[in-house]
């Protein structure tokens, strides 16, 4: 996982709220191996017409937004399914951070697993940022994770919150499993107590469903 420290990059404004995971990547592409490049599926129905040609009016099809690394979006971004492909596609397109007033239930946690930073700011602040981006197309924003601020086009900083454990993992590009391994003692203890107290939870009868 790539670490995230400080990023200055072109930001694309997407005004629409409730951008769901079906919009981010239609279900039919989720059977493709990651190696094909999920960037081609991002916003597929908005970006391409029925013949597969780019729709020129879609913002991410226009310069300079093709090289945007930040999205500033409407509320409830990524609502809908757990499909992590909706994050893989965005990351593969080159986006490293998404600023919104809220995220769908699964989207933010899937972001953290893939080095994509979800930044939550107040709705008024996000709307003001989008207005700045519309006024000066192609202008850059800076996101500073150690200081937890988004710096707007006027040089003003907007502080955001992030849980310390998430921050540590993003800054170091650390995988969750590595961290969990530090707790293996507690885990062993927990499991042996559970196996003794509630043996029916061990799943032993399911052995009959294991195929060789």
């Amino acid at each position: 996982m790539e670490s995230f420290v400080r990023l200055t990059a072109i930001a694309a404004p997407l005004d629409q709220p409730d951008i769901d995971t079906d919009m981010l990547i239609p279900q039919r592409f989720l059977r493709k191996p990651l190696t094909v490049g999920y960037r081609n599926f991002m916003f597929f129905n908005d970006r391409f017409d029925a013949e597969g040609k780019e729709k020129p009016d879609f913002i991410l099809n226009r310069e300079p937004y093709r090289s945007a690394k930040i999205l500033v979006t409407g509320a409830n971004f990524g609502c809908g399914s757990t499909r992590e492909g909706a994050v893989y596609a965005v990351v593969d397109f080159g986006i490293r951070a998404i600023v919104a007033s809220s995220f769908g239930a699964f989207y933010a946690s899937n972001c953290y697993q893939n080095g994509l930073l979800p930044v939550v700011l107040l709705e008024e602040t996000v709307a003001a940022l989008r207005a700045q981006l519309h006024a000066l197309p192609g202008v850059e924003l800076t996101i500073d994770l150690p200081d937890q601020v988004v710096i707007d086009t006027k040089g003003r900083g907007h502080r955001f919150e992030i849980e310390p454990s998430r921050k540590e993992r993003m800054l170091q590009g650390l995988d969750d499993i590595r961290i969990t391994e530090r707790y293996s003692g507690a885990m062993e203890e927990f499991e042996s107590r559970l196996d003794a107290e509630m043996p029916w939870l061990s799943g032993k009868p399911l052995q009959a469903l294991v195929r060789r």
């Binding site: 399914s81 757990t82 499909r83 994050v87 239930a105 899937n110 697993q113 969990t180 499991e191």
Partner: peptide, 30 residues
């Protein structure tokens, strides 16, 4: 899958997670 919440009907804390979290559960059971 988001609709894992279905199982809550039995007094279960049941919820959907992404593929990376599935990997974590497979590897650690937590």
């Amino acid at each position: 899958d988001s609709h894992t919440t279905t199982n809550g009907a039995f007094g279960v804390f049941a919820f959907g997670i992404g593929a990376s979290e599935i990997k974590h559960v497979l590897a650690t059971q937590a």
